[in-house]
Design a protein around this nucleic acid. Structure first.
Lengths: 146, 146
DNA sequence: TTGATTTAGTTGCATAACTAACTATATGCC
DNA sequence: GGCATATAGTTAGTTATGCAACTAAATCAA
């Protein structure tokens, strides 16, 4: 018997990421209000570079769950804004290392604060245990499909 | 004290809809393998029309959580594929009623089956109670932000 | 009735996604 | 060494999203 616990009307909203879309839109809005010109997608790349700088584009694909063309263009746009720089790898000439510039390094704290604030707004009235369950389910779904 | 129960590394995946993106990608793949040419976004419009045919574009905006330009273009593309037809409302000349064509009506059962099958694959090993909690959290997050 | 406001929908512009096809470099095998 | 294969990244084409500015029709109020 299939595991169809989502009713039809709800199925759709899961697939289309109703809740996560709403969170992303709010964060984008909060970025704009703070005078930040970056998109959520650009931020997600910077986010991984703040954790570990100078990753290859392929590594950014893995960590952001994006394909190669998407990363190519995100890096293009981030480079236009002088937030990252492509550096050729010294050991493998196929590889570009994507490194943060000084201005990008300075954005880290502000954007993390805005992201935390956005999640706080989103999670008002949600119990910690339930959040843990959501995280587990997300991970399980992701693992089931990849 | 802020409600930051998501740790940093997980925060991002919620905002970018890691899990729901994976589900959407799998469903798109299943559509393609079944020979269906429609996108997930187009399907989400058809989905609401199967529940209730001949909705206005504004009503489709509300039900699919999309803005007006997005719906305009989704309808444009669905019309190109002869899956829907814009019909002028008889009582309000500003309104287009978006109605299903016969070919679109025939797609309903197949796509619902594929969607259910996809959700089954995604939800292997996930408890029904946990799914209910996810749904509640999603709704709460959505309500908090809109 | 007319003039302001609201509502429904469209268009233009920028960014981003996926697929497929491509180039260039590295690796592995004979 | 030389050829097949795998890996890193780019480009082109289509679809979709968000925002701002726009047109047309309906509504509301003086």
């Amino acid at each position: 018997m299939p595991n169809n616990h989502f009713k039809r009307g709800e199925l759709y909203s899961v697939i289309n990421g109703m809740a996560s879309t709403a969170v992303a839109r709010r964060l984008q809005k909060n970025f704009r209000q703070a005078g930040l010109e970056i998109t959520i997608e650009q931020w997600s790349v910077l986010y991984h570079l703040w954790k570990e700088d100078c990753l290859s584009q392929q590594e950014l694909c893995n960590r952001t769950f994006r394909d190669k063309p998407s990363i190519t263009r995100l890096i293009d746009n981030l480079e236009k804004q002088s937030l990252v720089k492509r550096m050729p790898s010294k050991t493998d000439r196929r590889i570009n290392l994507v490194c943060l510039t000084e201005p990008a390094k300075n954005l880290q704290q502000l954007t993390i604060d805005l992201a935390n604030q956005t999640m706080s707004e989103a999670l008002v009235g949600v119990k910690k245990e339930d959040i843990d369950i959501v995280k587990e389910v997300f991970q399980r779904v992701y693992d089931n499909l990849t």
